[in-house]
Design a protein around this nucleic acid. Structure first.
Length: 580
RNA sequence: GCGCGCGUAGCUCAAUUGGAUAGAGCGUCGGCCUCCGGAGCCGAAGGUUGUGGGUUCAACCCCCGCCGCGCGCACCA
């Protein structure tokens, strides 16, 4: 078990001894903001003392006296009642040596120890059939993928489920366009652009041509009632779109365990609404069927429609059916939805409606439902990110440009490398830069998209982290001939080595924070600090020139840093390269 | 109008959710390669955290009032 967890356990035992009825969940050990205070701290005692109107420093003293951690760390009471812990060098080196032996990488996997693995479903990306994937999809895709990776790394089970937009009124327009205006050559060359052209063409013309609008509606009705030809066209559009999705996901390294379209749930919608009505969860209102939430203050004036007055169903209905399916199929403890912040009200309604439904139907307790929402990507002018022509930016173009820009930089910095290798480096750096730029800001804020910033090779960027990794690999290429065996004793002889070592210990703490708050930016910042501390070590502590045991120890520190960098970047969905 | 969110250095963003002296990068200014990759490092300047009050040992964070911006509010997803 990692030192901070051991401290936390002992601390909780000590608090229980002093205050038997205290809520121990708030008694947590966190890294110190200032190294001078120590390595870890606990500030819960001040809150506990306050609630009991006792003296915080006295309580701290009482707890400290009951605390049994002499082998691990030194304990100090400070300020208003902080408990500070300074790790003993031996507990640091022992932890590093265990990691070097491959016993752990500074985190605990659920299932191995006390924590039970969680079972989760992650809903993200959600592209639409017959439309190009654009920047609007990138944050959902990258955030969702990263969260799934972090949860899995921690030993949890995650089903990634892509809820594809393959059903809806747009197909009336698309089928009319397909039947009347399709250009087969264009379709063969670039199916998405051709379908997009058809859709735009019909939408534009239908505005002034009622007959065309009516034709679209009829094609839609025919599709929905199972008309053969329309079904066939629809399936072809899906297949063509799926090819595009697959290509983009392959470039991004994103994998889905399940990808069911909205159409999959279509057959269930009618009976679902009937059931809701029968259970009196939903009722008729202004010709539509709606779920009202008189008991939920925020939703008092916001009923969720589950059937439109024209008899059609909508997003909410499909989401409820989807929820039901996921519950039955995977029995998850939690389901996360990674979407735009503008859908907050929608998900509040879906979750509340589902709650009502389940409690009336008397099923098992529902899983934890989380809307992991994020802000918008803006252009340099602070307005929604668009191309110069005012179009939405296509994801494939964006990735192309990232790789192209990276290629220019790589060629500039390292012209001697063969072309193929420079391409591969540019791919890893370009894609990594886009992802990292997306994951670094607090997900709830809007952020401004900037090529120069994300591909910058200094600052808090993916290339900076990849560079730190590549430098370490370079050391190993040089050390190879006389490499020591893995598992050498660790000596922390300088402040830089000590700081690096201590930071390595906090990898797991960070991963857990990401999983708890659904915020990969914690991991970005952790890795950036790690790279910074490594660079400081690198500047001040010669590795290959150090003598014998010190050399072996420093090589081991390098190896551990590289492993954490690689594993951490991988959890963000970002690749590393040996040379750049 | 109601609701959600945001406002932090010239710019772009952090701040482990109420903790100790609010941190990075860019930009500006000044330094560092005979040395494991200079795609790097060190230093300096730069802040009344939009604003006015409140809560307490402690507030960027919580509460109330303003100002400004974004988004959402019944049949689009």
């Amino acid at each position: 078990m990692l030192p901070h967890k051991q401290i936390e356990q002992h601390l909780q035992a000590a608090v229980r001894a002093a205050l038997p009825e205290a809520d121990l969940s708030m008694v947590r050990v966190r890294p110190c903001p200032e190294p001078k205070f120590g390595d870890y701290q606990c500030n819960a005692l001040m809150a506990l003392a306050k609630a009991r109107k006792t003296n915080p420093r006295q309580l701290a003293g009482q707890v400290a006296a009951a605390l049994d951690v002499p082998a691990l760390c030194e304990v100090e009471i400070a300020g208003a009642g902080f408990l500070n812990f300074r790790l003993k060098p031996s507990s640091i080196t022992q932890t590093l040596e265990a990691a070097a032996r491959g016993e752990h990488l500074f985190f605990d996997k659920a299932g191995n120890g006390v924590q039970k693995p969680r079972r989760g479903v992650a809903d993200f990306s959600s592209p639409n059939v017959a439309k190009p994937m654009h920047v609007g999809h990138i944050r959902s895709t990258i955030l969702g993928d990263s969260l799934a990776r972090v949860l899995r790394l921690l030993g949890h089970q995650v089903v990634t489920d892509n809820h594809i937009g393959d059903w809806g009124t747009q197909f009336g327009m698309l089928i009319v366009g397909w039947k009347r205006f399709l250009n087969r050559d264009s379709l063969a060359a670039d199916p998405i652009s051709e379908m997009e052209r058809l859709y735009k063409l019909v939408t534009r013309n239908a505005a002034s041509d009622p007959a065309l609008l009516e034709a679209s509606r009829q094609e839609l009705v025919k599709l929905q009632s199972g008309h053969d030809e329309n079904l066939q066209i629809w399936r072809e559009m899906i297949a063509l779109s799926q090819r595009q999705f697959d290509e983009i996901y392959a470039r991004l390294g994103v994998r889905f365990d399940s990808a069911l379209g909205e159409s999959f749930y279509n057959a269930r919608l009618k009976s679902l609404v009937d059931e809701l009505q029968k259970l009196r969860v939903a009722r008729e209102s202004e010709g539509a069927i709606a779920v009202f939430f008189d008991d939920v203050p925020q939703l008092k004036d916001h009923p969720a429609l589950v059937r439109k007055s024209d008899g059609g169903f909508n997003y909410t209905t499909t989401d409820l059916a989807t929820l039901e399916y996921r519950l039955k199929t995977w029995r998850p403890d939690e389901i996360i939805y990674v979407t735009d912040g503008r859908q907050q009200l929608h998900f509040q309604q879906v979750f509340a409606a589902f709650d009502k439904w389940q409690s009336c139907a008397g099923g098992e307790p529902p899983p934890k439902l989380v809307h992991v929402w994020f802000g918008s990507i803006l252009g340099e002018d602070g307005k929604p990110f668009k191309t110069r022509g005012g179009e939405t930016v296509k994801l494939s173009d964006l990735l192309d440009e990232a790789e192209e820009r990276a290629f220019k930089i790589v060629s500039e910095k390292n012209p001697a490398l063969p072309d193929g290798q420079r391409r591969e480096i540019a791919r890893v750096i370009g894609i990594g830069a886009v992802k990292y730029a997306d994951l670094l800001p607090n997900r709830q804020s809007d952020y401004i998209f900037s090529w120069d910033k994300m591909l910058a090779l200094n600052g808090n960027t993916a290339p900076y982290l990849q560079y730190a990794y590549a430098r370490i690999q370079s050391i190993f290429r040089k050390a190879d001939s006389c490499a020591p065996r893995a598992g050498s004793a660790i000596e922390l002889s300088t402040p830089e080595e000590l700081a690096l070592a201590k930071h390595l210990l906090n990898f797991g703490l960070t991963l857990e924070a990401v999983a708890e708050e659904y915020r990969p930016n914690f991991l970005c910042n952790y890795l950036y600090e790690l790279a910074g501390k490594f660079t400081l070590f690198y500047e001040n502590c010669p590795v290959l020139k150090a003598a014998n045991s010190l050399r072996a120890s420093r090589l081991e520190l390098c190896r551990l840093t590289a492993r954490v960098l690689k594993e951490g970047l991988n959890a963000l969905g970002i690749e590393t390269i040996e040379q750049m």
